[in-house]
Computed example of a mutant assay.
Amino acid sequence: MPNYRFTKELKLEIIHACESASIKQVATAYNVNPSTIKRWNQRYRLLGEDALENKIIWKTYTKEIKLAAVKDYLSGQYSKNELLIKYGISTDSLLTKWINLYTSHRELKDSGKGSLISMTKGRRTTFEERLAIVKECLDAGKDYRKTAEKHQVSYQQVYSWVKKFLAEGAEALQDKRGSNRDEKLLSPEEKKAKELELENERLRAELAFLKKLKEYEGRRF
């Protein structure tokens, strides 16, 4: 078959041909790769006929749109394809890039060039801090980014702490790094004292958490 120049009109013809035949059949008839037809069809459904023009079209997205799309995805309520349609995002890879940047503590600004600004890195915290941060994050509807920025910790830290707390309770927020090595150097009496100290610390933190939770519930009603 002769080579076709795939104009916007021809791409539309190919897309509509798929309504009465399989993509494989249409691809063979027009001598084009099936994956190319799928890409054209996706762009057509999301962005309209202009997206099929033979020229580079840069679509810009505001910071609010990017954040909304990423948060919707992280909520688990939407698939990537659903978000592409909901927000008019041109490609799956673009949404994936936003998600990776967001969860890597970097933020896309609302500019066409996609400029980046650094976000808060992780830091060491106490058990009481982690428990308080988790409580505040849950109160804020799992707004991990806002909580992370307020307490100068990373997004990933907050996300991990909340996940552990919901799955295993406050005990999961204890920092056990190096505990096995240190305990080998302790006498039986020192080990017992350390266990009591940790238990008291856990109880104090849980009581403080429950007190704050009770105050919060009281303000709601």
Rank of each mutant, 00 (worst) to 15 (best):
M1D: 02
N3V: 09
N3I: 08
Y4T: 13
F6H: 09
K8E: 15
E9H: 03
L12M: 14
I14M: 14
H16P: 02
A21C: 14
A21Y: 00
I23K: 14
Q25Y: 07
T28M: 13
T28P: 10
A29Y: 15
A29H: 15
Y30N: 09
N31V: 07
P34Y: 02
S35A: 11
I37E: 05
Q42T: 08
Y44G: 15
E49P: 12
A51I: 11
I57F: 08
I57D: 00
K59E: 04
T62W: 06
E64G: 12
I65Q: 06
K66T: 01
L67T: 11
A68K: 11
A69N: 00
S75D: 07
Y78A: 05
N81A: 04
E82I: 04
L83K: 02
T91I: 04
D92Q: 11
S93R: 09
T103R: 01
H105D: 13
E107I: 08
E107N: 10
K109M: 07
K109T: 08
K109D: 02
G112Q: 03
K113T: 10
S118F: 06
M119K: 06
E128C: 05
E128Q: 04
E129I: 03
R130Y: 03
V134K: 01
E136D: 14
C137D: 04
L138M: 11
D139W: 08
A140D: 12
D143R: 10
E149M: 08
K150V: 05
Y159R: 08
S160W: 12
V162R: 03
L166I: 10
E168T: 06
E168M: 11
A172Y: 09
R177I: 06
G178E: 01
S179F: 14
S179I: 13
E183G: 04
K184C: 09
L185I: 04
L185N: 06
S187G: 10
P188I: 03
E189I: 03
E190Q: 08
K191W: 04
K192I: 07
L196Y: 08
L198G: 05
L198F: 12
N200T: 00
R202T: 11
R204N: 03
F209Q: 07
L210R: 12
K211D: 14
K211W: 06
K212E: 15
E217N: 07
R219K: 15
R219G: 15
R219C: 14
R220T: 04
